[in-house]
Simulated scan of single mutants.
Amino acid sequence: MKSPPKIQRQCGATLVEVLVSVVVTSVGLLGLAGLMATTVKVNQGAYQRAQVGLAVQALVESMHVNPTAVAQGRYDGARANAGAASADCRKQACGAAARADDDLARFDRALANALPGAQASLKCDAAAGAVAADAYDGVCRIEIGWSERALAKGGEASPQSLVWVFQP
């Protein structure tokens, strides 16, 4: 008769097994750290676009309230940097031209805060019919352009733009 084989017990992991598990875990954590860095960059870009959208929406609403200045072309033109209005029309009554200047100054500040170095252009084209005193029957187009860093390290900045076409 044969005797049964002896059962060998393992008392712990060897040093090689521990080192392999540490290396595998480290590689996984480094990959996770890279993913987190990319996520932060993408979220920052989305936040900036949302802030620009809010600034444009505020300008569109202000233009809707001031159709006379829109018809006169007071809102048209290129916007490159934050401007200062001569009067704060939220605190005092203003005419159509002064209100347009105040609206554009607030838009410039909001745009500079959301996307430093951004440039915007706004152009309104009146419809073929006459412009009534309380409504603007035309279409406006605002385009905002900026340069955004690439996600890859050492990548070149790429031009970005957002365009809105609306009727104030």
Rank of each mutant, 00 (worst) to 15 (best):
L59I: 10
S62G: 15
A114K: 06
Q92T: 06
S26A: 15
D125N: 13
C140E: 06
E148S: 08
Y136T: 06
D125M: 08
A127I: 00
A93G: 06
I142E: 03
P67C: 07
T38S: 12
R109K: 13
L29F: 12
H64P: 02
G117D: 02
E143K: 08
V20H: 03
A33T: 10
N43C: 03
D101Q: 11
L115G: 06
A98H: 04
V20P: 01
A58P: 02
W146L: 01
Q92K: 00
E143R: 12
P67A: 10
V20K: 09
A13S: 13
L15K: 06
L59S: 09
Y75L: 04
S147T: 11
Q72C: 00
T14A: 10
A58K: 09
A50K: 02
V16Y: 03
R99V: 02
V16P: 00
G53D: 05
N43T: 14
G53A: 06
T14C: 08
V40I: 13
H64E: 14
V16T: 14
V65P: 00
G12M: 10
A118E: 09
R106F: 07
R90K: 04
V22H: 03
G83E: 11
C94S: 01
A114G: 04
Q48R: 14
R9F: 15
K6Q: 11
D108L: 05
I7C: 03
A78H: 01
A96N: 11
D76C: 08
Y47W: 13
G95L: 00
A50P: 00
V131C: 04
D125R: 12
W146F: 00
K123G: 11
G31R: 04
P4D: 14
N43D: 13
V60M: 15
V60H: 14
A85K: 02
L35Q: 10
L30F: 14
I142N: 04
A127Q: 15
Q57H: 09
L111D: 02
A126N: 04
G28E: 02
V52W: 03
A120K: 07
P116T: 02
V65H: 06
T68D: 14
G28Y: 00
T38I: 06
D134P: 01
D88H: 01
S121M: 07
R90S: 01
S3D: 14
N66R: 10
G145Y: 00
F107S: 09
R49F: 02
L54S: 15
S3W: 11
L29D: 08
V65R: 15
L35H: 01
G129S: 14
E17F: 05
